[in-house]
Computed example of a mutant assay.
Amino acid sequence: MKAMLSHELGGPETLKLTELDTPAPDKKQVLVRVHAAGLNFPDTLIIQDLYQMKPPRPFAPGGEIAGEVLAVGADVREFAVGDRVLGLCAFGGFASHIAIDAAQLIKIPDEMPYDEAACLIFTYGTSHHALKNRAEIKEGEQLLILGASGGVGTAAIELGKAAGARVIAAVSSEEKAQFCREMGADETIIYSLDMDSREAQKAFTTQIRKLAGGDGVDVVYDAVGGPYAEPAVRALAWQGRYLVVGFPAGIPKIPLNLTLLKGSQIVGVFWGAHTLREPMLHAQNMADLLRLYANGAIKPRISARFKLKDAAAALELMMTRKVMGKVVVEIT
């Protein structure tokens, strides 16, 4: 088998295509021939030891995969050779084969391509958990999405619309705004790349309130953080919910008096921990997503594809924040 391995701490340039022995699954595992691996921002962090999980080296990044079952362990009953599956693996996905716990896999329908399956679980899982379980979003509410053109952002657009919300997508360029409109966003905001000044932050809050009307937005989905967070919190309506999804722009400091004045909530979204702590709820959410996919309400938008040997270039693209929708490593 082949894998793109992180042998040393560093950026994408440190990854090396390596030939390895194909693993044999243990009694609770399944051996999967990987056809596609979806890229996510944590893949850029884990190779730099900046992620919560720090696997021993050498390891392959890649947290979500789709492929075909080649072998099953002695205790595995729910999968058989030939099954088409997607899986959440945290790392190890940038490889031609992976031995993975059966509990981390989900069967996929024949009509779902492997590339789309490899882009479903992480971004849509995060956004569905955020909007459904953490924000309890309701039909007719207004949803502001920061970083709306990225993987979790585009998933939030589709899921927000599926829930009956009015979606405002906030992005950094007109190209990204057009992409979000194509994804179904009702309104778009192009925010400044320089948000450090109080004037820029006030202008951003004003933009949000103008588009939202009334008291402001009911839910903020923040996958950006940094100086963009406080202006979004200030634009919350009474009893609004601010979802902490990620902070590639930095960890924000939010004045807590704003939550008192608005009766609002700051709600953490740690989807990885949710899948482990609430497995039944996670299973229900994944069933929701497969139904939404079958109904045409959601469909991963793949903007770039790379071969396994070019996985480092894929990660470089992710690190520049130029990705719109999803990026896939296709493994042939």
Rank of each mutant, 00 (worst) to 15 (best):
G92Y: 07
V34Y: 00
G62W: 05
L70D: 09
Q52A: 11
F91L: 02
A99G: 06
A103F: 05
E68Q: 11
R57E: 12
A99E: 07
F41G: 02
R57D: 09
Q52M: 13
H97L: 07
Q52V: 06
P55V: 07
Y114I: 01
D110V: 10
G62R: 05
L105Y: 09
K54A: 13
G92M: 10
Y51S: 02
I98A: 06
I108C: 07
V69R: 09
A36H: 03
G82T: 10
P61V: 03
R84N: 12
P56E: 14
I106T: 14
Y51V: 02
I100Y: 09
G93N: 01
A36E: 04
M112Y: 09
P109A: 15
V69T: 07
K107L: 03
P58I: 07
L50D: 10
G67H: 03
I47S: 06
V34G: 00
D110A: 14
I65C: 12
D49I: 02
A60C: 05
G63W: 06
P61T: 04
I106Y: 14
G63K: 11
A90F: 08
Y114L: 11
E78L: 07
I106N: 13
V85N: 02
A66R: 00
I98W: 05
E78Y: 09
V72W: 11
A71L: 13
F79W: 15
K54D: 12
Q48S: 08
I46N: 00
H97Q: 09
F91Y: 15
P61D: 04
K107S: 14
P113Q: 08
D101V: 08
A103Q: 15
K107N: 15
A37Y: 01
D43Y: 00
L70T: 06
E78W: 08
E68P: 10
A99D: 06
P42D: 02
D75R: 11
L86C: 13
A90H: 08
